[in-house]
Design a protein around this nucleic acid. Structure first.
Lengths: 114, 114
DNA sequence: TAATTATATTACTATATAGTCATATTTTGA
DNA sequence: TCAAAATATGACTATATAGTAATATAATTA
């Protein structure tokens, strides 16, 4: 990481921004178990048609998902498997933080009990 | 990832947002080889004092960095080692994409040469 | 061909936030 | 105590973007 150029950091920022949004993460979660149509994604992500379409366009531009058309439907799927790794790492970090907060809370409670 | 609750996805989004910004990535790059003062970070990230302070406050709130005070200086360091993993994964993804674009470009050139 | 279904796009609003300048705060040393 | 140095904060501007409603486009079927 120390050696990354400014230009590369810009690309990293663009990539992370494309993931760093609740509705898009819901869409990605919905796509995690395979290809889905826009309608299916709408249901599972609980977002409206216009909104889902726009987020899918953004994720496509970011090379995170791809699509194929069939009839009037469009099937999207995750094309970048690294997404999952990144989510997992972030989750580990969050989980660890919560764990540490619990420890701190316990220590405070001990103090109060004395 | 498939099993993450909406609430957890919100936390993931907050975490990723805190990383997904060029100046903050520059700051993290600068902190990668150890503790630095705000002044040192300013130089290495090429951002002004006010701006760096604000980004450091944000990174602190996100539990990504911590600080200690000594004299009039404040020393910041990365407290969440997962940052590096995430950057590395994103970089792998970007590198892979560039590699594939090169292949596609070559194929196009072959086509033109025929 | 007209109607229907699925999706994309455009225009708009509201909100968030990065950057900057000026100012405040804190610590140190003369 | 006063001045200087380091950092933080507040006010402001400009820009980006998420959400939404309305409309456009494309494929299918009656």
């Amino acid at each position: 990481m120390k050696t990354l150029t400014n230009e590369t950091l810009d690309q990293v920022a663009v990539f992370l921004k494309s993931m760093a949004e609740t509705t898009r993460l819901k869409i990605l979660r919905s796509l995690h178990d395979g290809e889905k149509t826009v309608s299916e994604i709408m249901e599972e992500s609980e977002a409206n048609q216009s909104n889902v379409s726009k987020h899918l366009a953004l994720l496509t531009a970011a090379h995170i998902v791809t699509f194929r058309k069939n009839g009037t439907s469009v099937y999207y799927k995750i094309s970048d498997p690294n997404i999952t790794d990144i989510c997992d790492t972030v989750c580990r970090s969050i989980a660890e933080r919560i764990r540490q907060e619990r420890v701190m809370l316990k220590n405070i409670q001990k103090g109060v009990a004395l």
